[in-house]
Design a protein around this nucleic acid. Structure first.
Length: 422
RNA sequence: GGAGAGGUGGCCGAGUCGGCUGAAGGCACAGGUUUGCUAAACCUGCGUAGGGGCAACUCUACCGAGGGUUCGAAUCCCUCCCUCUCCGCCA
């Protein structure tokens, strides 16, 4: 959420951001309601001041045993007027809030302008694409053949685009989760958290998934609860309504959760195999930082995610998302795409975003820059570190052999307890 | 699921029969005085948001959230949320 004052004073910037993000929040209506609101506030406040004054008089009169019925009668009328003004105020305010919640964050000045993912800019590429002396195969053939990935049975349980892992496949999933969390905790200094994965609507609004993405989420209607699409939501909302001492920052969390996405409307492209499934595992990193440091922290965050791919020696590239591809709440975002040789594709395994104070304002998470300073909003960041299914694709397809077996990368072997899946 | 208790400022905590309580008191914090240093003591200040004024300042709202009663609500009524205790049920 953007500050209403900022919106008022920078309406051209906001208008531009809405356009760049290909959004359509009704800024003009917001500005009009805001003006209306301020006029109403003034009228109501004046009447309230009068009411307070006279009410005190009434109290004094009554205490001294005098008659106050004339004033009471007068105030009855004033109160009625106040009630009506307050009603108008309420409706203006709820209109403002509704639109305000729909206005996207403003892209950082370093973000490339563009309308779609084709305008994303390559930041760096790491590693070399592997070469094979045989035709590398797709994970959706290798996995089922080795009986470690099972699409058919999972679909029977839950429908298409659900998956089941078995044997070494299941072990590999569990091992990757542990491996990544251990790395972030032991080497990168994150604190591990374990959080609920079914949350109230408010939390989804806090991080900005709602109101835009309701169609993309699984919802438990009876309780009006949502299954999380990413651990970003519970972890960032952990500190709702809190004020941090500045020495506590930056706060860095990492956690594993399953994630649930309906992927409504995405049928057709890129849904085969493990590329886009409704339930998947992800290790997430979340940071709460001081405003001045958030862009440095973003760079560190991306590096922390990249390191996993480096350890597994998987080639990848880092992209800066263009304005049109940037998510609603983000000011800047890097995507990390790992190379999958079997299907010859770059696959997004991580999005690392700086939300500046956009989410913090919605969740009311602040810090005191100085002991005696006023609280101000923290900046929040998050990034996948990493999402499992596409990492698995890359591992399976990169480490496959001519015999159709899969070699376990050295660093994972202590976790998996195997050298090769055959 | 049933019964009860409670939710007040950064934290703890008091608020009588509704009326100088935006909220006593304490802690923490900031500035100052005293002091050989430290400690202690003392004084002053210290919530958030929104209006108006160049400014000193002033007005309004906020005591879990939202409604209601009333001239007037932290205090009374209703709904919801949360926390705690006991009982029931159950991994």
């Amino acid at each position: 959420m953007l500050d209403i004052k900022f919106i008022r004073e920078n309406s051209d910037k906001v208008r531009e951001a809405i356009k760049q993000k290909r959004d359509h929040a009704d800024l003009d209506k917001l500005l009009k309601l805001d003006e209306e609101r301020r006029a109403l506030v003034q009228k109501a406040d004046n009447l309230k001041a009068e009411r307070n004054r006279v009410s005190d008089q009434i109290a004094t009169l009554k205490k001294s045993g005098q008659d106050a019925s004339e004033d009471i009668l007068k105030m009855r009328d004033v109160s009625e007027q106040i009630k009506q003004l307050d009603e108008g105020l309420r409706s203006a305010e709820s209109g403002i809030h509704e639109i305000q919640m729909q206005i996207p964050n403003i892209p950082h000045e370093s973000v490339p302008i563009g309308t779609s993912e084709r305008d994303n800019v390559l930041v760096r590429e790491w590693g070399k694409k592997p070469t094979f002396d045989f035709e590398p195969r797709a994970h959706w053939d290798l996995g089922p053949e080795l009986e470690v990935v099972d699409f058919e049975r999972a679909s029977r349980l839950s429908g298409s685009n659900f998956v089941s892992f078995s044997g070494a496949g299941a072990t590999l999933v569990r091992s990757l989760i542990n491996f990544m969390i251990d790395l972030h905790v032991r080497k990168h200094g994150y604190k591990e958290v374990w959080v609920p994965i079914i949350l109230r609507r408010e939390m989804m609004e806090g991080t900005g998934q709602l109101p835009k993405l309701e169609e993309d989420m699984y919802r438990i209607e009876k309780d009006d609860l949502f299954m999380i699409p990413t651990a970003e939501v519970p972890i960032t909302n952990l500190h709702r309504d809190e004020i941090f001492d500045v020495e506590k920052l930056p706060i860095k969390y990492t956690g594993y959760t399953p994630c649930f996405r309906r992927e409504a409307g995405s049928y057709g492209a890129d849904t085969r195999g493990l590329m886009r499934i409704h339930q998947f595992d992800k290790v997430e990193m979340v940071k709460f930082v001081r405003a001045e440091t958030s862009y440095d922290e973003l760079e560190l965050l991306v590096q922390n995610a990249e390191e996993i791919l480096q350890i597994f020696n998987l080639p990848y590239r880092v992209m800066t998302l263009a304005t049109g591809d940037l998510s609603f709440a983000a000011a800047k975002c890097y995507d990390i795409e790992v190379y999958a040789p079997g299907i010859d594709r770059w696959l997004e395994v991580s999005s690392c975003s700086n939300f500046e104070d956009f989410q913090a304002r919605r969740m009311n998470i602040r810090y005191r820059p100085d002991k005696s300073a006023k609280p101000q909003f923290v900046h929040t960041l998050n990034g996948s570190g990493l999402a499992l299914p596409r990492l698995l694709i890359a591992l399976i397809e990169t480490y496959q052999t001519a015999e159709g077996t899969i070699i376990i990368p050295e660093p994972l072997r202590p976790y998996v307890g195997l050298d090769v899946i055959k």
